[in-house]
Amino acid sequence: MWLLCPPGVYRPQDDTLLLEDALKRERLADDVDVLDLGTGTGALALAAAERAAQVTAVDASVRAVCTTWLNARLHGLRVRVLRGDLTTPVTGSRFGLIMANPPYVPSPRAELPARGRARAWDAGSDGRALLDRVCSDAPPLLSPGGVLLLVHSGLCGAESTLGRLRRAGLRAAVTERRYVPFGPVLRDRSAWLEARGLIAPGEEKEELVVIRAERDR
């Protein structure tokens, strides 16, 4: 699907495509409500809107919100687009499917960037600043039988994500792993990542994982 992607908005990449593949494998009821957290260009929200009754897309970036709104209308798809901090705009709502591709790249700076391009990927020194929030804030929004699909780098620790989701009462498992070449950000940080013990000397590929977590009916 062709999408507008202006400067400053996260362009769909391997993690987006991996999560879209996971979305395609889900059997969606006719009346399912879908939530896309950190929507970026709206790529995943639009893919869901082709099958779902209602799709809500959330992003903290004004540019991303405007881009998703435009892309939805260019393709004639209905997507409710909200600006806000992760799940804050939908507090108290319930969804049958939640998708999340949050920033997850470990950064030499512990604080999250307030603006700029790095806001789309930097996530604190261990890459979990946003992931941990998704693990705590998304489960209460799932309807009985609802599913959370979450993608992130293996550098952040899939086992930590699984543990948090299970403690939140969900049945969670890694459903896909894929290795992709380092992009520009990880290449620039390879020496720092190696010094932190997050990658092996000379390592040039990143593991991406998709985690599927389901609430009991």
Rank of each mutant, 00 (worst) to 15 (best):
L46R: 07
R109S: 12
A173C: 10
L208A: 09
A43E: 09
L46P: 14
C135D: 11
L131C: 07
S190H: 00
A48W: 01
P103S: 13
L77Q: 09
A72N: 08
G197A: 15
R166G: 14
P113Y: 06
P108F: 06
H152M: 07
V58H: 03
L74R: 11
E214A: 09
A100T: 03
I98K: 06
E159K: 00
D85L: 11
L3F: 01
L4D: 13
L130T: 05
P108Q: 14
L198T: 01
R83I: 13
A173T: 15
T16P: 10
L162Q: 04
D85F: 06
D188Q: 06
A158C: 02
R117C: 07
M1P: 00
R164W: 06
H75D: 12
W121L: 06
A52Y: 12
A47I: 10
A64N: 03
G146T: 07
A43L: 12
R196D: 05
A120G: 03
R78H: 12
A64Q: 06
T67R: 04
A129W: 03
R215D: 10
R117P: 15
E50D: 12
L142F: 11
A118V: 14
G84H: 14
W69L: 15
R167Y: 08
W2R: 11
I199H: 01
V90F: 02
P106R: 09
P181M: 03
A158Y: 00
H152I: 01
W192N: 01
R94A: 13
R83E: 15
S107P: 04
